[in-house]
Structures are given as structure tokens and as C-alpha cells.
Design a protein around this nucleic acid. Structure first.
Length: 422
RNA sequence: GGAGGGUUCGCCUAGUGGCCGAUGGCGGCGGUCUUGAAAACCGCUAAGGCAGCGAUGUCUUCGUGGGUUCGAAUCCCACACCCUCCGCCA
């Protein structure tokens, strides 16, 4: 939810942001009008209410003719108050709708444009170019690690089983990430993955993402697409005592309908309905958010370094940000068989945008409540297995396990193909 | 699924129509006393909107939404959530 004060004080900055995103500039003026309308409705109501309160105080002391006169006056006043109150409620609804129509103000420095207008910040590592490379699914089947056929039989397209070293690899990857976070001072969290509508709504996922979200109508609960949802809603309606950034690392399964992505990444486990993820989530004062964002990115890169993956970092363009983010950096790992980079992590700085709707605040140096900034970033996810298998494959179909990961997969340094027929 | 009980300012709690934005305790903050600390005592201690440079004023909020009333924490209705008991299932 956009900061109304900012829109009032510097509407031009918000208009510029809208332009950079390719969103409607007129939405800013609509919001300013709605704000104006609400304020005048409020003062009208308050003047009437103040009079009503005044007269109400006289009532118990009054008697006789005086009381009758008072009653007559207050009776008409009561109707006026009611009408004025209804006008305020309506003006507030209009204002809220106008407020939701505007996405977060893009951070200075973020590139303008759409999905293809990202800026590559750096490329890290040497891209491996294995001869006769097998793709991750072929490797996964050789290793007895990934079974998409039975996944489809049991649950449908975009479902899969992880078996044998596949199951171990995923758990190891997530643990490597989680331990890195714990050592960096994060509080590890296993959150609920079913949330109430207000939690889903408060984190902004029922807006443009609504079609992506699984809903359980019998209980009116939603399956989360990321632990960002329960981690952000965790401190809803709270005033935090912040002493530096408050950091959580959430481990959860994630569920996505992948509506509208028919035909995209259909092979293997790149784009699936269910996967696991360790997500970093940080609460901090707004003035520290940009720094914290860089830290989250650094932790993501540290993780990819441990996995010995070749990747690049991109600065996502304004039009591709999502409504809550002011800035977003993605790390994309190299995929030899597709000759392209694939997103494996994403970190967003949501500034105060997400926290404002969730009403999550902190006390500043003067002890005054202020809206906090929230940030999130991927630390480990099922999808990293795709890059890991492909980049570390060897000619015989075995896959090298990076050193840092070995302790988390039972000390294995190589994953070997299993015999056929199992 | 059935039957009860509950939801008030960080926590606990008082409050059955105007004297209630709301009692008391705990916790927290400040002070007196003390070499220091403890104890005791005194004071302060919800959030938000609007107007104003400001002092301040004013309005809203007692789970949520509606209703009754000149006036609602208090009466009525609906809903949500929590707890207890019973049943059912792991």
C-alpha cells in the first residue's frame, strides 16, 4: 500500500515511478482526488459529531422545556451524523481502492521498461559446457532421483517424485541454506503453509497473483506460494522493538497453480506446482532497507558460490517488479542444455509498502511508531537442483557434489547412476 | 458434528445506557531516598485520522459488521476467532 503522505508531498515522484513501470499515471491524480474527498467528508462528519457530543453532555442535566428542545435538536442531528458517517465510509472505500491501484515507488537506479529490459550486473564463475550434455531430467532419471511420470500419474502435470539421491539432494540443499542463515543470525522458522484470506491479501498476493494461488473453499484457506506470506503476516498489527534488522529464514513447501504458463518449461522440474524453499525475510528501518537488500543478495551469492554454480545477477526492470517491490535482483544460474540462464533466486526490497497494509511498525529513535521496511530473498530452492545436476554432470552421467554440500548428503562426493529396471 | 464459556490500552483485570478513552495490578520509563543497589514512595506509560508553524484542539477505536437510542464497552442481531466438555478420527 502506497504511502499517502508521499503522494501528497511529492506526487511527481510517484508519477515518475508509474511511468517507469509502464503503469497509469492518472492513477496518481485519482488518488489525490480521493484523498481530498475523504478529508472533507471527515471534517464534515467531525463537526457534526462534536456538536452531538456537546449536546449529549447537557442532556442528563436538562429538564422540562429545555430538555424537550434539546431532544428535538439532537434528533435531527442524529440523522445528519449518520448520513455524514456513511459518506466518510464511502469516501474511505474509494480512497483505499485508489491506493491499491498504485504499485510501490521504484527505487532510484532501477532500470525502466519490461521483462526484457533487465540490466546484467555481473557474471560469476565459468559456464561449464559439457560435451553431449544431458538435461536435468535425463540426469535425474539416470540417478533415480526424479520421477515425473509417476508424478503425473498420481497428481497430474507439473508434479514429480524426488526419490533416492534426489530426496537426499533436496534436503541437503535446503539444510545447507538454512544453516548458512542460522550462522548469519537468522531465526529459522517452519511456518504454516495454509493461511487465512486476510494473510494472503495483506501480503499482496491476491492482487495480480490471484490466479496463481491455490484456494481451499471448504475452509476458506489458501496454500502459500512462498513462505514470504506467513513470515510477513507473522508480525501483522504489531509494533516491533527493533534493534537492527530482524531476520527470519523460513522453510516451507510452496504451491503455485502456474496458471497462464501452459507450454512453458514443461519438461522436468523447472516449473512445478509444488516445491520446497528456504526464504530469507527481514524487517528493518526504511533507511537501512537498501543496505539490507545488498546483504540479502550477498547471502544468496554466497550460497550459489558454495554450490559452485556459474550464474549472473540481474537488476530487474521496473515493469517486471511486482507491485510490492521497489527493487529486485535475481540470480540466474547457467543451464548448459538450454544455453540460457534460469532464475534460481530473487530478492526484493518492499520498503514500507508491504508492511503498511499489514500494519507492522517499529519504534524509531524518538519512540514513535513508524512503518517498517520488509525484504525477502531466496536462499535455497528445489529449482537449484536443476542447475546443480546440469552444471556438475560428468560424461558417464554421474554428478559431482560440491564440497560444501557433501556433509548434507551423507558425505557423498559423486552421485552415481543407478541400474536400470528399478 | 453437538453443548457451553470467552474476546477491554504490552500482560492480567474492573466495568449492565450519559459521571467511561475507559478501573486496578504487573511490566516499562522518569524521579525522591541511598556511597551504589534493593525496598518504599511519587509521577508518566495505547494507536490512529483531521486542523494548526507550534502549544494545542477535535474525532475515531473496548473482536468484526449491522441495529435500537438524543446518547452504547454496556441492550439486540449476524459473523469471526479462542477456550472447555462430548462425539468421531489419527
Amino acid at each position: 500500500m502506497i504511502d499517502l503522505r508521499l503522494v501528497r508531498e511529492d506526487p511527481e515522484a510517484v508519477r515518475a515511478s508509474q511511468r517507469l513501470r509502464g503503469d497509469a499515471v492518472e492513477a496518481v491524480d485519482a488518488l489525490l482526488h480521493a484523498d481530498e474527498a475523504r478529508r472533507s467528508a471527515v471534517s464534515a462528519f467531525e463537526a457534526l459529531r462534536a456538536e452531538q457530543n456537546q449536546l449529549g453532555k447537557l442532556m442528563p442535566k436538562a429538564a422540562g422545556d429545555e430538555k424537550a428542545a434539546l431532544l428535538a435538536r439532537t434528533k435531527t442531528l442524529a440523522a445528519d451524523v449518520k448520513a455524514a458517517q456513511a459518506a466518510v465510509t464511502e469516501a474511505e472505500q474509494v480512497l483505499r481502492a485508489a491506493q491499491f491501484a498504485i504499485a510501490n515507488v521504484v527505487q532510484d537506479g532501477a532500470p525502466g521498461g519490461g521483462e526484457d529490459d533487465y540490466v546484467v550486473l555481473r557474471e560469476v564463475g565459468t559456464r561449464p559446457e559439457p560435451a553431449d550434455a544431458r538435461d536435468h531430467l535425463a540426469l535425474g532419471e539416470l540417478l533415480g532421483a526424479i520421477d515425473t511420470e509417476r508424478g503425473a500419474k498420481v497428481s497430474g502435470a507439473r508434479f514429480y517424485y524426488l526419490t533416492g539421491v534426489g530426496a537426499l539432494l533436496q534436503l541437503g540443499l535446503l539444510q545447507l541454506g538454512l544453516w548458512q542463515a542460522v550462522e548469519a543470525g537468522f531465526t529459522p522458522v517452519i511456518p504454516p503453509v495454509l493461511v487465512k484470506p486476510e494473510s494472503m491479501e495483506g501480503t499482496g498476493f491476491l492482487g495480480s497473483h490471484a490466479a496463481e494461488v491455490y484456494h481451499l473453499p471448504a475452509d476458506d484457506l489458501y496454500l502459500v506460494g512462498t513462505s514470504e506470506v506467513p513470515l510477513a503476516a507473522y508480525h501483522k498489527d504489531e509494533i516491533l522493538a527493533l534493534n537492527g534488522p530482524l531476520r527470519y529464514a523460513g522453510w516451507s513447501s510452496c504451491f503455485r497453480r502456474e496458471a497462464g504458463s501452459y507450454g512453458k518449461d514443461t519438461r522436468g522440474i523447472i516449473r512445478v506446482h509444488q516445491f520446497d524453499k528456504v526464504e530469507m525475510f527481514s524487517y528493518c528501518p526504511p533507511e537501512e532497507a537498501a543496505q539490507e537488500h545488498q546483504r540479502l543478495l550477498a547471502w544468496e551469492e554466497e550460497m550459489l558460490g558454495k554450490l559452485e554454480l556459474a550464474y549472473r545477477v540481474i537488476d530487474v526492470a521496473a515493469g517486471d517488479l511486482g507491485s510490492s517491490a521497489a527493487r529486485k535482483f535475481d540470480c540466474e544460474a547457467w543451464l548448459p542444455t538450454q544455453n540460457r540462464y534460469m532464475e534460481v533466486t530473487s530478492t526484493s526490497n518492499c520498503t514500507t509498502f508491504q508492511a503498511r497494509r499489514l500494519n507492522t511498525r517499529y519504534r524509531d529513535a524518538d519512540g514513535k511508531p513508524q512503518t517498517v521496511a520488509t525484504l525477502n530473498g531466496t536462499l535455497a530452492t528445489t529449482r537449484m537442483m536443476v542447475a546443480l545436476l546440469e552444471q556438475h554432470q560428468q560424461p558417464d552421467g554421474s554428478v559431482r557434489v560440491p564440497k560444501a554440500l557433501q556433509p548434507f548428503v551423507g558425505g557423498r562426493d559423486v552421485l552415481e547412476p543407478v541400474k536400470a529396471g528399478s
